[in-house]
């Protein structure tokens, strides 16, 4: 296939891995590029960026970027990333994965990493369903929509309000954008990359192949148009107002931004100092 040369983010991509597995119209390409652009604009040494992902469509991103990339098990990128970050506090550790990976099978890790304020950035790609396995209902599937395991419509499950979940669990930065709002997303990644602590960016994405097709949005452009028409930017929005109800407006923006909160790694290093100073005083263990 023809490869476009000279793209500004090409150096962050493993060109030899193209073509990628994402479907035409998938929002992942936009997120992928937004992240690379944010890193480029910040001028962060790409060697110092580590990407950890779980399983699912978005989980493949760690393998396409040219950063050190770790494609782990389903639901477990957050604890894996925590171990790596604690071992190497000098590195920027970023988790990118989907709503099913991070909130269903990995939901426990999400809230506990937030509670501990583990110093990682989590880019949570919310496409409302399990894309890779064929479009099943997930923890963010809006009520009333159709998936391959809710053929009568999702009148069974209520979705998480991801923003409120993250905020209530202790995240220091919580933002939501869509893949239509690519400038906001890029700027938000830049903001989050310069902060410390557990940071969550929910990116409402498109899945025309699975979710869109079953919800009267088979055309990729209609998916983007849906996001454009329903997402409403608010300044300093309240996380409690961040529910996503299908067919209605939903809020995007920066919901939480807390500077200076001690991270889990900071606390561990303090405990080490205390233990070693007591050891010096007592002269034995």
């Amino acid at each position: 296939m023809a490869i476009v040369s000279g793209h500004p983010t090409e150096k962050y991509v493993r060109i030899d891995r193209l073509p990628h597995i994402w479907c035409p119209g998938c929002g992942m390409g936009i997120i992928f590029n937004a992240f690379a652009r944010a890193i480029d604009e910040l001028g962060i040494d790409p060697k110092k960026i580590v990407v950890v992902s779980g399983i699912g469509c978005s989980g493949r991103a760690s393998g396409y970027w040219a950063y050190d990339g770790f494609h782990t098990t389903h639901g477990r990128p957050i604890p894996f990333a925590m171990g790596l970050k604690l071992a190497r506090p000098d590195l920027h550790v970023v988790v990118i994965s989907g709503d099913g990976d991070l909130l269903a099978i990995g939901g426990n890790h999400f809230i506990h990493a937030a509670r501990r304020n583990v110093d990682i950035l989590v880019i949570l790609v919310n496409n409302f369903n399990y894309g890779m396995t064929g479009g099943q209902v997930g923890p963010t599937t809006p009520e009333g929509t159709r998936t391959t395991t809710t053929p009568y419509g999702n009148y069974l499950e209520s979705p998480f309000n991801v923003v409120w979940l993250a905020a209530a669990s202790g995240a220091v930065y919580v933002a939501r954008w869509t893949v239509y709002h690519v400038r906001n997303l890029t700027e938000s990644i830049k903001t989050a990359m310069q902060m410390r602590g557990f940071r969550v960016i929910e990116v409402v994405s498109t899945c025309p192949t699975d979710f869109g097709r079953r919800n009267r949005l088979p055309d990729p452009l209609d998916n983007l148009r849906y996001l454009k028409e329903h997402a409403v930017y608010k300044k300093n929005p309240d996380p409690r107002e961040a529910d996503i109800i299908w067919g209605k407006k939903f809020v995007i923006g920066e919901f939480v931004k807390i500077e200076g909160k001690e991270t889990f790694g900071d606390r561990i290093r303090r405990i080490i100092q205390i233990a070693q100073s007591r050891l010096r005083k007592s002269g034995s263990h």
């Binding site: 770790f70 477990r76 957050i78 171990g83 970050k85 604690l86 071992a87 426990n108 890790h109 506990h112």
Partner: peptide, 17 residues
């Protein structure tokens, strides 16, 4: 950790580190 699954995932990450 919050469970054993997280525990082993964390040590694999730390070993890479």
């Amino acid at each position: 950790m919050e469970d054993e699954i997280a525990s082993i995932a964390a040590i694999i990450g730390a070993s890479w580190g």
